[in-house]
Amino acid sequence: MDIVQVENISKHFGEIKAVDNVSFNIEKGSVYGLLGPNGAGKTTTIRMIMDIIAPDSGKITFTGDQQSGDFADQIGYLPEERGLYRKMKVKDVILFMAELRGMDRGDAFNEIDGWLKKMDLTEWENRKIEELSKGMAQKIQFIATVIHKPELIILDEPFSGLDPINMTLLKDLMLELNTDGATIIFSTHIMEQAERLCEKICLINAGKIVLEGDLREIKQSFGRGSVEIEYSGDVDLIKNSRFVEGCNDFGQYVEVKLNAPEHYSALLQELVETSVDITRFELMEPTLHEIFVQSVRGEGGLSNAT
């Protein structure tokens, strides 16, 4: 079942087409990656999902568990640029955000301690936000985003500026929430993170969808049929194989381009029968990063992909 259905939404700002006819469905309980370079239209898309701005055309439908009341109460949103009320105390900020999402103040009060403990911030609960370090404030904001147990959690670049320990902590918490049933929209331009976390992705560039669907299927369709072989022996035996189209010798290993992706086992069999001693034989999948660069360039206009 889909929790969010985005149908043909478009948004203009003056002359600029920020989002152009974008559609996708997000399956309930999944981790969905919304990817694209800076300025691609990710934030605008999220803002439309959040009902902060209205699309010029198209529509967005939610199917939450609780049909009554505000769906906004079922969403947790962590905007890309962080910030909390600097003069407020940690506890008060979290309570305020929870109440805004329709959570009972008493319930929120009971939840806070557990969360602060998880984040290792218990002794900071009565400090003001301005006294916290950037990383601590970011963790507090994460608590404020998810304390009301939303069905849909939208995280815009949640790991930016975090050290590896806190990054792992937040990632684990995110996956924990996902295991407990929350659907997560994860927006980022860092492909390695998306590759590890997302089941489905949507790649946006210049307001348009470039790729959308299951990450594994996308990777397979981008499979370029290359193999890396570490060996000792005569490299010509590899070069002259009838399954090999091209070969790139790196000294320690060769990168081999097959003439058809399915020929890798045939090549392996052939090499085993020769005098070449193989220590590694690896079928290379394209990384999401490569797919990203390739598709965005292919679309003819990559401004500043990282």
């Binding site: 959040m50 009902d51 902060i52 906004a72 909390l84 009320y85």
Partner: peptide, 8 residues
């Protein structure tokens, strides 16, 4: 923060 608030 306003983005979070005005969705509520």
């Amino acid at each position: 923060i306003v983005e979070v608030i005005i969705s509520s």
